[in-house]
Structures are given as C-alpha cells and as structure tokens.
Design a protein around this nucleic acid. Structure first.
Lengths: 347, 347
DNA sequence: ATTCATAATTGGAACGTTCCAAATTCGTCA
DNA sequence: TGACGAATTTGGAACGTTCCAATTATGAAT
C-alpha cells in the first residue's frame, strides 16, 4: 500500500513530453499548445499526481503560505477574525498557518520562529500582551510583510490595522449620557494594554465633555472574559455610590456583566444599562440584545488579509497604519433610560 | 534591505567545517564533538541563519505539519477543539494548518487538496455535512494518517474520535424525568447528521424506558446555533401541549433557547428546564449556569492530536475508533439547584 | 526553395537540505 | 612504532520543482 510518489518526470514520461512542459502546464502558462496541455492534464489525473509545494518553494523562494497568530482563539472575536482572514487568503490560493499563543510571549516566540522556518510569505499577528518591537524585528529585517491586528505596537515599523477604540468608547458613553445616566462605569480588560488605554481615554473624555467627573473608582479592570465581567460588576455593585450603567471592555465582559446583574436580580437593559465592544456574533441574538460598538471582527480579518496580500504582491510596501472606523449599534441592553421613562409615564 | 538567504554552506564556511557537520548539529546528533557543536551554534546565531524546512521536507519526505480542518470555527466548540489540538501538536514540534470549511463540501475539497500538496503528515478533520468516505480515499491511499473528530463517517477506514452521544443524551433525559418532567422536547440540530441521530436516539430511548411516548412533534430541528435555538423554542411553544423541559442539540442551541424563553418572560431553570450538550467554556459562567453533557472540546482536541501523532510515528497504524465518555454536569438551567433549595426549605 | 518570425518544446542547472559511504583524526594497546 | 577501533568529519548524490537559454517545429512571405 505504500505508493511511491508520482513526480513531474513520471508524468512527462507517460505523456511523452519533457518535464519542463509539464511544469509549464502546472502553472497554467499560455506558452503550451492546447492539445499537449489536455494530454498532460489527462495523464496527471490518471496517475494521481500530487503537486509538491515544498519542492516548488525551494526553487522559487516564495511560498503560498501566510501565518496568523492570535493571542486567544477561545475568544470568539479572534475566532471570527481568523475565519475572516481564512476566507480571503484561501481564495487568493494561499493557505494559513494558524497558531494560538494563549497570551504567552514565549509560545509566541516559538510559533513565529516556526513560521519563519516554514517560509511564510507574510504574517498577521494579534500580539500577546507585552510583545515588543524587538520581537518582530527579525521578521521585518528579512523582508517578510507583517500586519498587526487589534493591538498596535509602537515603532515596530510594520503595518497595523486597529479600530478606532477612542471614538467608539466616546460614542458609547455619550449615548449613555444622553439617556440620562450620570454614574457610568468602565468595566473589564487589562489596564496595561493599548486597547484598554484607548477605550478608557474615550470614556473619560466623553464624561469630561459632559461636565461629569471621571472618578477613578468607576474604572474596574478584570480579565477580558465573561468570568472577568462577573467579578467586575460584583466589585462595582459594592461601591457606596453605585453606577447605573457601564461601558464594558468587550462583549465577553459585557455578557459576564449581564450574568452578574441577573445573579443580583437586576435585569440588564431595564435596571442597569450595559454596552459592549466588538459586536461578536452572539451580540444580536442574546437576550437582551447587546448594545455594542461594532468592530466587525470578520471584516477586520478580511481587511487585514487584503492588506497583507497587497504587501506580498507589491514585494516591499512601506508600513501603513489603518484605523478602522467603528459604529455604535444600539440594541436593548442599554435600554435603562427608556424603561425608566416608561415607568415614570405610567406612575 | 533585501538580505539574501544564509544557508548551511554559509555557516559551514564561516565555522570552518563541512555542511554535513552543520546539518548534524542542526538535528542535534550525538555524533558531533562538543566543541564543534558550540562553534557551529555560535556561527548560526551570529549570521542569523534560519532553517529552511521546505528544503528539508524535500529531502526526507516527511514534514512537521499536520492539518486540521473544521466545519465551523465560529462555533466555540470547534475553536476550543482547535486550541486543544494546537497545544499538543506544538509541543511535539509540529505546526498546524488550520482551515475552516463553513460546512461547504467544495471548500473542504480544496483545503484538503491544498494540505496534501503541502505535505502534511497527518490530518484531523471534523468533516462538513455530507462528506463521504470517497472524499477521504485519496488521503488514505497515499498513506496519510487521518483522524475524524466529532463526526464519524462509515467505512472510511480511518480512525475516529467521537463522543458517546447516545449515552449522554440518555443521561440528560433521565435526569429530567427524575425531576418530574413528562413533556420533554429535543431541540435544534440538523436531522441529517450522525450526531443528531445518536443524540436523538438516546433521547427516545430514555423516554421509552420510562414508559413515556416519544412523540415526533417534540423533536424540532434547526441550525445548530444560538439563532437556531431561538427559533426552535419558539416553535416548541406554539405546540398545543407545551413541553416543560428540553434537551438541546448543543450548548449554542441551549443558549438560544434561554434567550427565546426570556423573550417570552419565562426564566430558564425556574419556569422551564434546559440542558445543553458539549460544555463549552461559557456554560459554567452563564446565568443561569447551563446544565449540560460535558464533552470537553479542548480535551477532545488533545486526544485527537495524540492519536494522530501516534499514528504518524508508528508509520502505519490501523484505524481505531474511540468513543469518548461523557458526563452530565448538573448546574442551574435544569432547575436542579432551585428545586433542592426549595425542598430543604420545606423540610 | 529559402528566409524569417513566431509558437512550442526542451535539457540542464539551480534551490537548501539530508543521507550514505568513505575518509580522517584520535587515543590506546601491544 | 604500528595497528586497531572508536569518534568525528566530510564530499557528493539525491529530493521534485522552476527557470533560463537554446532548440525545434510551424507557417507565412518572399
């Protein structure tokens, strides 16, 4: 049962042409006559030939592989990002190496090295916490296009695709203020990340703009996960002067906050307004449907892939930083004000 | 800026040894003297050499790549499965090609072909709906180990790792019956899949065992997603004789069912019992915490990877079918805790 | 018939590694 | 000193492709 490999020379011999001709057919060259092309293709099918990309890579040192490394595939935001990348990358005839770092910088070093050894022709990376420009230096030195997604790294000299976290956070908080909220918390996320910093800055700015003071006590960090959201809201509810609304670091945290509220017999949307960030796929079907700042992870993955492919094809493109715009999607979880108004109207 | 490649010969020249020696060092052979090894390693670092796996693959036709293809990466069950695979595969020095088929058989064909061309030394696949044994035939003929996960395919002649869907469903339904439920629905999932069939059979059998009749009307299919769960429960509630409990096809459906119940002002766990299947990571933090049949997706990914690696190392292992055991994790969505508390209060 | 342009085809030399058989060095023992 | 075995080292020859320069076939124009 151990079949030995069928190679181009086998095909060539069987079809009565030279291996060069077979190679030409394989790459769809227009140089080859229609009838020979047909004959060769027939032979290929007949002998069950499979193309050996390792060999091809060796000769023409450019592979059809791109790498994508994410810090937490378990988070559906990143899973969706990955499928976004996958769709465009696939249809461009590339294939993706996907690695998950679980936020561990050591693991990230390994996988990046491994990808380099495999000759990826480009890399999309959502870097683990604490990644520095130096970690990416070898890549850029060897001329491999890199695009950072979600998290930017200062002075890395590579392209990046982030979203307008600052504007998104401002829009969300303004909305809460418009609805009459005065004590608004910012819940979840690790404070030492650039994304946290940007969202928090937007939150602060919107508060100041409205003449509200941005007390530090209402900013409560946590793991950026559902479980983290639960603990963050618990902490928030222990405050002497409780908030009535919260902007959450991301949707996962927001769901956790909803869970935590229910555990206290508070109905999210009615008794407390919550807004998320990301607009993951579950946001619209959840009950109450989550008001959130839409980042469109899948679209982001697609754009990142397009950017990367552009750089790969261009040979050597200079770094560009794209800040994707973002929009507030108002659904039900921030409906506190409405409910209150209704209640007042009834009384 | 365009650095040309540093190769083993460059290292050899710089270190004053032959390329063979460098190669030996690279593979950590014990044949080479300690001091030369050190010298070579120093040179490697100094010149910034990066190993070229394409070249190595070409020579010793076995790569350090395994492929994993899943039918829906957006579903966190599969995302977790993928990270499970990733962890063990990484630490064995392999790297994974991950592809998402979005349940499209055509896409699956492409990605499998592509992986073959890249010379993966093994493949883990959760096949798209409608995959037949013939689709995998080329793989097995060329001696590439394949392990099916989650969904088995009859007569494919490859290893498979599934979970005991039948027993899990029975346990769940028995539990509901024990709690006094008599009208129990089976919600969600595509009826034309083996997994659906197995779970449904378990559901039926548990009902019959208890002398309840398994009316067809209580089995309602839908997309195996959160949105599908919403529609399924809506349909169930339109029945003249409504169910009081449901076993859901998977956790995503179960969450959707909870959403749908809330939309009707029914509290899952209190007014209606729901049990999921899979035990995804959110199941324990959701409110109410989801009672579910635990399948441990990450562990499943790990076991699949281990099985695959075993076969890769063994050269040619015969197919084995593993049916992972499964256990019911009782949390709050089936009303268990509440009932218990009530009972204690009464006594 | 000859010439010439164009279309098609083709050998061989890479690409960067591993593997094999053979060669070299080294220490030890007679 | 010579011989011998073990420990190291080393030249090629692969591996399966692509690319280049060169060759051959084709057909039209003279």
């Amino acid at each position: 049962m151990v079949k030995e490999r069928v190679t181009v020379v086998d095909i060539a011999r069987a079809a009565g042409v030279s291996k060069s001709t077979v190679s030409l057919v394989l790459q769809g060259s227009s140089l080859v006559n229609e009838v020979t092309r047909a004959k060769v293709n027939a032979t290929i099918r007949e002998l069950g030939y499979v193309y050996n990309r390792s060999a091809a890579n060796l000769r023409q040192s450019k592979s059809k592989i791109i790498g994508i490394v994410v810090n937490d595939l378990t988070n559906s935001f990143f899973a969706e990002l990955a499928v976004g990348v996958d769709t465009v990358v696939q249809s461009a005839g590339f294939v993706q190496f996907l690695a998950n770092t679980s936020e561990k910088i050591e693991r990230q070093r390994e996988v990046v090295a491994s990808m380099r050894e495999h000759g990826v022709s480009g890399l999309i990376i959502s870097p683990a916490r604490g990644t520095e420009a130096a970690d990416l230096a070898p890549l850029v030195e060897s001329g491999i296009p890199v695009v950072l997604v979600v998290r930017d790294i200062a002075d890395a000299g590579v392209s990046s695709l982030t979203s307008d976290n600052h504007a998104g956070a401002m829009a969300a908080v303004r909305h809460l203020i418009d609805r009459g909220h005065r004590r608004i918390a910012f819940l979840g996320g690790f404070p030492d990340t650039a994304v946290f910093e940007a969202r928090m800055r937007g939150y602060r700015e919107a508060l100041l703009e409205a003449g509200l003071d941005a007390a530090d006590g209402l900013v409560i960090g946590s793991a950026p996960s559902r479980a983290g959201g639960v603990t963050a809201i618990e902490q928030a509810m222990m405050l002497s002067d409780r908030p009535t609304a919260a902007l959450c670091f991301n949707d996962a945290v927001a769901f956790g906050v909803c869970d935590g509220l229910r555990a206290r017999r508070l109905e999210p949307g009615a008794d407390f307004a919550v807004i998320g960030f990301d607009d993951v796929i579950e946001a619209k079907t959840a009950v109450p449907a989550l008001t959130t700042v839409s980042v469109d992870p899948q679209g982001m993955g697609q754009r990142a892939a397009e950017l990367l492919l552009k750089q790969i094809n261009a040979g050597r493109a200079e770094a560009e930083s794209i800040i994707g715009s973002v929009r507030l999607v108002v659904r039900q979880s921030c409906g506190a004000a409405i409910e209150r108004k209704t209640r007042e109207a009834l009384s």
